[in-house]
Amino acid sequence: MSREKPKSFQSLILTLHDYWSRQGCVILQPHDVEVGAGTLHPATVLRALGPKPWNAAYVQPSRRPGDGRYGENPNRLQHYYQYQVILKPNPENMQDLYLGSLDAIGLDLRTHDIRFVEDDWENPTVGAWGLGWEVWCDGMEVSQYTYFQQVGGLDVSPVAGELTYGLERLAMYVFGVDNVYDLPFNDPDSPLGATSYGEVFLENERQQSEANFHGYDVAVLKQQFEQMEEQVPLMLARSYRNKALVLPAYDMVLKASHLFNLMNARGAIAVAERASYIGRIRDLCKLCAQAWVDQQDAA
């Protein structure tokens, strides 16, 4: 294949979009609620459940308030991008498809050392787990590869295969850049001028870090969390055309989850409370997962 190697952060994304589009995936846009990982997009958490085939790829901005470093750490961000692929049922040749995507972004598999290293993935806040690997390229983790076994405490059948690429890290590796803020966001030879990742996001990292660690009012966060928590079952109790309002209810779970992450970053959650908060979110998520599966079966 003589496709041109991507030269910028955005062309890396476009290359992956193009590749997965050619494999037959639906190319989605990010979900418009703050989430901590691409997995939490309803296109993964909910669509992984139920019998219907589903193949999608999308970029998801991910927020980890506690990882904010005021733009001073070259590797850590409180807002970054994950590239997410979900294939249900996972095709027989999913590993080959994945390796094809690495080739597409310009990693020569006969020069680089690609390894599949055991990593059992789990996300306790959504009651999900699966088996798979971290994929290493020359010693660096470039993707997470998982066969979902359970989501929301329910068995995933047929099994969905999930791929998550940490886009900034992958781009830094492909472009040989040591500091995330130096990544070329667009083509460095653009006639309209080169723009770096830092020019787009550095100020955002600074302001959001300050807000995450000092800005948010803990009492307000807590109140909002509890409101969301209360609203989820109420929303699920409503229905339209005989279907419970799972999708809006799940958005509320996501909001609760993000509020929890903000409280955590503010240091407002004692170690002993942590598990109980995570359990509360998981319970809400399970309610949504069950309601979603019921709708799929009925359909």
Partner: peptide, 25 residues
Amino acid sequence: ITIANIQAADGGAVIAAGNAKVLSS
């Protein structure tokens, strides 16, 4: 010393450099 899974076409130069970078970070 890293134990790669391939005998690379370039004698492992890219692998060594990549791993060195990861170790540095």
